[in-house]
Simulated scan of single mutants.
Amino acid sequence: MGIKKLRLICLLIVLFISILIAYSAYTIWSFSQEDQLVHSDAAIVLGAAVWGDQPSPVFRERINHSISLYKNGYVKKVIFTGGKGSENDYTEAEVAKDYAIENGIEEKDILIETRSRITEENLIYAYDIALFNKLKTFTIVSDPLHMKRAIFIAKDIGMQAYSSPTPSTQYKSFKSQAPFLFREVFLYIGYICSSPFRNSHI
């Protein structure tokens, strides 16, 4: 293979990757602005860090949004997700449950899963619990830039899922949004590329 041909191939590869990254970033950003506000059986709140027995500011705003959806009649149940960051920590889901009860959600309307450590596990384990409880439609709650990947995964595992990003996200400045967006682009592309090689979740 000649040098010119090799350079052309390399250029085309770089161009393709650049377009893929740019397009993914655009779709993630665009989708982050959508709130598919519908009535559903349950809100699934994706886990985030906890500080001792309290939710971190990021997680607190996700929980607050699910409380608003519940109190306004958009969801009947709330499923909190998230395991432990380390062995001695409280689980994210348990912290979220306690906070939600203190802020007006009936304990009987809360379900939790405490095993997950990543977004895909959040949704898979929550779906297992939902199916056991005969819940069929879901409102996914997280930060806006997280929603594109979360909804893609949810639908990939068979959920009838809708996006409702928290309007009070902690990621408001360019300084905080830029690394979040970069991370989501990387994870979104990685998930799409790995999908054909992944066994069915159900």
Rank of each mutant, 00 (worst) to 15 (best):
E106R: 11
I105T: 10
K97V: 05
I110A: 00
H65I: 11
T114N: 12
K71A: 00
I110H: 02
R117T: 14
D109P: 05
N64K: 14
A93P: 09
E92R: 08
I129Q: 03
E94V: 12
G83K: 09
I124C: 01
I101Q: 11
G82P: 07
G85C: 05
T91C: 08
A126K: 08
E87G: 05
L69K: 13
S86K: 08
S86P: 01
I118T: 07
N72E: 15
R117Q: 12
A130H: 05
K77M: 02
R115A: 10
E92C: 07
G83H: 03
S116H: 13
E94F: 12
G104F: 07
I105L: 02
I124Q: 08
A100P: 10
E120A: 11
Y125N: 08
R117M: 14
Y70H: 12
N72G: 04
T81K: 12
A130G: 02
R115C: 01
G82M: 11
I101Y: 11
Y99Q: 05
G82E: 04
S86N: 12
V75G: 02
Y127Q: 07
N103S: 11
A126T: 09
E107F: 00
S86D: 13
S86Y: 14
D89V: 13
T114L: 01
N72C: 10
H65Q: 14
L69E: 13
L111N: 04
D128F: 06
N64P: 07
A126F: 11
T91M: 07
V95S: 00
E121D: 02
Y74V: 10
S86A: 12
E107C: 02
N122D: 04
I129Y: 02
S68N: 14
I118A: 01
V75R: 09
T119E: 09
H65D: 00
A100K: 06
G73H: 14
G85L: 14
